[in-house]
Amino acid sequence: MAETSVADRHTHGAARAHQFDDAEQQRDAVTMGMWVFLVTEIMFFGGLFTAYVVYRTLYPAAFAVASLALDITLGTLNTAVLLVSSFTMAVAVFGSQTGRRRMLVGGLALTIALGIVFLAIKVYEYYQKYVEHHIPGPSFAFPAPYTQPAKMYFTLYFAMTGLHAAHMIVGCGLLGVLIVMAWRGRFTPEYHSPVELSGLYWHFVDIIWIFLYPLLYLVGRHLE
């Protein structure tokens, strides 16, 4: 069996597992599997989004005031950084589909670089929150009468952006592995599912941020 699959790799230039009839069936199956995983990710973040909806409904004024403590310039900049990184990821997928290895490696490298820029800005924002005593805990401080509900807002802020940042770190790791594989010429127009699927993951993480940005940064801007 092992020899057949090695032979397959040589004849088709594609890593096709023996349980699939053809490369197309395999591609459909792995794409479907990835989407099912992403649905579980929607529900993973969904708990936090639901908690956000509940507490924002209970304390709308406190959430609006607390959101003003975030730096909207950095938040908007980070949104743009992430959107451009999704574009470079799409370009990398295009490179893998059309057999342009340089475009693939370059696209992946740019995507990782933008991901790191995003994380660096996020770390700086967290540091600002630390300096301003906005991290929930013994040293938390926020003007009355919103001290308690603002603590809830910042708990959700750190939980949601933290979980998102964790996904970004995983994404950067995935893309790093892909760069090595692409460099070694492991992907062809017939076989590049790892690139396509990691792209789906990266875009999904981008979509999460597309919702976090208005929910966390834009809630109370009209009060300014």
Partner: peptide, 24 residues
């Protein structure tokens, strides 16, 4: 099929939020 899977994710998230809020 992929679109149905993606829509199912949104639909289930809708159930989570709608039923929770119907309580609160």
């Amino acid at each position: 099929l992929m679109r149905v899977v993606a829509a199912a994710g949104l639909f289930w998230l809708g159930i989570l939020i709608a039923l929770t809020m119907s309580d609160y």
